[in-house]
Simulated scan of single mutants.
Amino acid sequence: MNILQVFSLMCVVVFYFIYFSKQYLLRKKGIKSNQIAKNTVHNKEFFIEFLMKIATFLVVIVEVVSIVFNIYREIPLFFRFIGVIFSIFGVCLFAISVWQMRDNWRAGLARNDKRELVQTGVYTMSRNPAFLGFDLVYIGILFSFFNLILLFFTIFPIVMLHLQILQEERYLVEIFGEEYVKYQKKVGRYFGRKSVFSDV
C-alpha cells in the first residue's frame, strides 16, 4: 500500500470515527443526534433523507474499494496529491464543525429538539461547514482514485447532501425565524461572507 492509499484510507477512517464518536457522546447525554429519516413529517423530506442515507453509505464502500485496490484511471500524480490535501482539509473542517456545534449538532431534521443557532467560529464563514467537510472528503478521494464508478458514487451523495441542506434551511427558517434569515444574508451557504462572496 503506497502513501496515497494510506493517507486516503486514514482520512475516511478518521472522518467516520469523528462522526460516530460525536453521536455516541451526545447519546450519553441523552441526545439522539441521528435523526436521518426518523422525524420527518412530509414524504418529500423522508425521501430526501432516506436517499441521502443510502448515498452516504454506498460512497464509503466504493471509496474504500477504490483506495485499497488502488483503482484509478491514469491521472497526474499531482492531482492525486491534491486529492489527499482536499480530504485532509475536509476531515479537519468536519471535526471543527461538529466540535463548535457542541450539543446542537444533529444529523437529519430534528423537529422536536431545542437547539441554539451557532454563528461563531467556522460558522462565520459557512452556514454548512460540516456538509462542506463531507463534500471535500468525497471530492478528494475522487481526485486521488478517479474511476467512473467512484465518480457516480461521489456525485450522488453530493447532490443528496445539497438537497438536504435546502431542506434544512427551510426548517431553520421555521425554527429560528428572522435570526436565521439575517444569518443567511451574512454568510454563504457553503463558503464566504456575503459582503464579499455571493451565495453559493
Rank of each mutant, 00 (worst) to 15 (best):
L4F: 06
I18A: 14
K22T: 10
K22G: 01
K22R: 11
Q23L: 14
Y24C: 06
L26N: 08
K29E: 15
K32N: 13
S33F: 04
I36Y: 04
N39E: 15
H42Q: 12
F46Q: 00
I48W: 07
I48K: 08
T56A: 10
V60P: 05
V65M: 10
S66R: 01
I71C: 02
I71W: 06
Y72S: 15
R73G: 05
I75F: 03
F78M: 12
F81I: 12
I85L: 15
F89E: 05
G90M: 06
L93T: 04
A95E: 09
A95F: 03
I96H: 01
L109I: 15
A110W: 07
A110K: 09
R111D: 11
N112W: 04
N112Q: 15
K114Q: 14
V122L: 12
T124C: 13
S126C: 01
P129D: 03
P129A: 00
F134A: 01
D135P: 02
L136V: 04
V137H: 02
G140A: 03
L142R: 04
F143K: 01
F143W: 03
S144W: 02
F145S: 00
F145G: 00
F146P: 04
F146R: 03
L148D: 11
L148N: 10
I158P: 00
H162M: 02
L163Y: 06
E169F: 03
Y171F: 15
V173Q: 13
E174T: 10
G177Q: 03
E178R: 09
E179W: 02
Y180P: 05
Q184E: 15
G188D: 12
G192R: 05
S195T: 09
S195G: 06
F197P: 00
D199V: 08
V200R: 12
